[in-house]
Structure formats: C-alpha cells, structure tokens
Write a protein that binds this DNA or RNA. Structure first.
Lengths: 222, 222
DNA sequence: ATATATTTTTAGACAAGACTAAAAATATTT
DNA sequence: AAATATTTTTAGTCTTGTCTAAAAATATAT
C-alpha cells in the first residue's frame, strides 16, 4: 500500500537519504534546508507531514531519519533518476553534464512497469553516466573497490570509475581535459606546494590536475 | 519568452485545444470541466488566470479560445505526449492500450533538447501508436486521407490507420480481434438490423464488428 | 414574453507548500 | 554557569488549485 507522494515529498526524502549517507546520524533541519534550497521553517513543516505519513522518524530539535518505507521510497527515486540519466546519455546522446536537470523531472514519473522495462531496455546497468551505482528494484547498491585519485602515489595509475562532484562546470572541465569514465590516469608528478598533479590520461598527453579536481575523481587502482 | 507553466495549466490548454478541434467555436466552461473532470467553478478560476497570462481569449459567459501562444503550447504538449507514446511502444515494448497514462505524465517534462533528441531517436515519426498525427516542432500536423470504416461498402477494404476511441477497453477489444494499425479490413456483410459488419482482418478469419466499433476505426481505402 | 431551466460566475473556504518574523530550545563561549 | 550565538520551531501569510453554495446571466419552453 505505497501511498502516492508529491514531487516535493519525494525530493525531501531523497535529500534526507543523501545527507544521511554522509553524516550517518539523524539529519538536521538546516542541512535539509540547504539541500532543498528552502527555509528551515518550511523544512519543519514538511518534517511533520512526512512523520505523520510514517516516512521518517522525527523528533523536535533532534532531526530526522528515514523509516524503512521512507528509505525504500528514496532509493526508488534514486534508481529512477540514475536509470533515466543512463538512458539520456546512452540512447539519446546527451553528454554527462547535461542530464541531471532533466532526470530531476523524470525521476518522479510514476510507473513501476515503466522502470522495469527501461531497466531491461538499457541492459540492466549497474552504474550511471557519472559512475554512481544504480540501486536494484529491491534497493541494493552494487558496491565496488574504489579510492580517490589524490591517494595514489607517483607512478601508480587507476581507471576513472566515478566523480564525486556533479556540477556542470566540473564535468565540462573534465571534458576539456579529455577525462571520461574509463579513462586510465597515471600519476607522474605531485607538487609539494599545492598538491597539484601532473598526470597522463589514457596514455596521451600530460595534463595538470589541481588537488580540488583530484579529490573528486574516483578510481579503481590498475 | 515562453513562460513556465504548471502541469495543470498545460492540461487546461490541451483540453481547450481538443474541445475546440470538435466544436470549432469558443469552448464552454462546462465542456472544459468535463474534459478536466473538475467543477465549473474551478474552470472559471483557471480561465481568468490563463487569460491574464494571455494564453487564451476569454469572455465571461462566452467561453474560451486559445491565443496563438496558448495554441503553440497546447500543440507542443500534444507533440510531447505522442512522441513519448511512440517511445513507449516502439522502444520499450508497451502495448498501445498501456501508454496513455504514462505519457500524461511524461508530456510535462520540460526540455526542448530532450524532445528534439527523442524525435530524432525515434526516426522523426509522423504518427503515434494510435495513428494520431504527431505535430512538428512548429506545430504542423501531417494530414492524411482517411475515412471511417462504417462508410465502406460491401467488398471494399481499407488499411487501419487510426482509432478515434483511446479507451483501454476498446483497444484491448481490438487486440482480441487481432486488429492493429496496418491491418487490412475487408467488408463482407452488413446487417440491416444493427449495422454490424462481418469483416475479414488481414486475409484471416472473419470477425463481427458492431457499428460502435466500426465508427471508431479510421482507415485508408485500399 | 414570461416563467423555468441551465450555465456560468462569484463568494468564501480549504489543503499543500512556501515565506518572514518572532519565540523557544539547544550549543558554544567566556 | 552565565551570556551569547546558533538552530529550530511556531505563528501568521501567501499562492495555487481545488471545492460548495448562492447569485447572476443566458437559454429554453410554454
């Protein structure tokens, strides 16, 4: 008896889910407000509604955490988002920095059958175009061994499997550097001064990555 | 400078467009209320809002008609609906009676680029899975020569190019009779009593169609 | 052409999701 | 531990889209 939720309710659940991934404990009102780009007062209002619907466990002044139902809903929305992003890139030819906004709308389309068929059509992908894991229908994520590029030593190399930052500007920056999912990155030098790296990408020309960039690249050691 | 509209506003515009297709003149409040499955009072409220935004021309007690902008918006929503229906059937393998509801949601996704790419991906289809014409980006419909099956005489035949009724029950009925878009239908007998037809479908076994069914089948004479 | 019926609009309310400003609770300093 | 700062909640409004009941306009029938 999954109740039908509004887009806004679904987005709040997603925000709590994502905030909780990082902090682990109950999520603050202000944190949610930042995620949702709204006021703390609005968040409090919504927390009461979601608690009433038993989607979250909420205690005044203590923050919120997802109930089992709420968690299921949140992962289902994330699943839909990531499957749609995969569709947009793999089938329609969008670039990875163009798909987030559109998927933000598509993720709220309400049809289990649609998602089942889309998943099949895409060949049951396990990762989306940014390398994020796509949860299965029952909410399980396929985990993988990964580390941050900055943790590699000189002469070590890795395959890019994901990015931590999804901003258009960051992704476009990677495009310009010819860095994409699957690229092989070999560390050649590290500056003692600012930790910037000289790397070669897929056996090609050398490029310089600031530490800020390197910290946002997830690789599998190779 | 196309303003961003709510789903509801878009649905009202679509309703006015469709009602106007039939009646040609300004559309009554009650007619719109029936299309939207809401009260006349709500319609009046919305008419004021849409008139304020210059999407319709509205006169109290006289009804509404679309402005050029309103008409453009309505056709764009219809274009999106029909492209998505085509996607659902051709790519995801849905049956023609399953796609309307899902497309009712998808038609409100807001991205011109998405629709351009989807159109291309589908091979620029001119008709959707029910045989309805898909308007081009500039709002033009591809018309075709067609007539209603009931107008055929004995021994004449036609190719099914569209259906006038989109209800699930009607479409499932056609499925059972093995009638689909492209089927060739040959009239063999007509009952004087109730106008029911004995026809053969694509050179196959004979089936009986009630007049109610025959009136909803659009064919190209063959 | 007057009475009756129908259609449409107005008036007043409500729920959802948001806001601002002020009050209350909790955290952090000194 | 008192004073100050921060966070969170409450109170009161607003907008959107809806509703019902009553009033006004238009259409139909006698």
């Amino acid at each position: 008896m999954t109740q039908r939720l509004t887009h806004t309710e679904e987005n709040y659940l997603k925000a709590i889910y994502k905030a909780n991934e990082k902090t682990k404990s109950a999520v603050n009102t202000n944190t949610i407000a930042a995620y949702m780009n709204t006021s703390a007062a609005s968040v409090t209002d919504m927390m009461k509604k979601l608690a009433n619907k038993e989607l979250i466990i909420y205690e005044r002044y203590k923050g919120a955490r997802l109930s089992p139902t709420g968690s299921k809903t949140a992962t289902s929305v994330i699943r839909k988002h990531r499957l749609w992003e995969t569709f947009l890139v793999q089938k329609l030819g969008f670039s990875w920095e163009e798909v987030h906004e559109i998927a933000e709308e598509l993720e709220h389309i309400n049809s289990d059958e649609l998602i089942t068929k889309l998943d099949e059509y895409l060949g049951f992908p396990k990762y989306d175009p940014h390398g994020d894991p796509i949860p299965s229908a029952d909410g399980k994520f396929m985990l993988r061994e990964q580390m941050i590029l900055s943790q590699l030593n000189i002469a070590e190399s890795g395959i890019l499997v994901g990015v931590k930052n999804h901003e258009t500007s960051f992704l476009s920056h990677l495009n310009k550097l010819n860095i994409a999912l699957g690229s092989s990155i070999l560390i050649k030098e590290r500056s003692d001064f600012d930790k910037s790296l000289k790397v070669s990408v897929s056996e090609g020309a050398d490029v310089v990555l600031t530490d800020m960039v390197a910290k946002n690249l997830l690789i599998r050691k190779s």
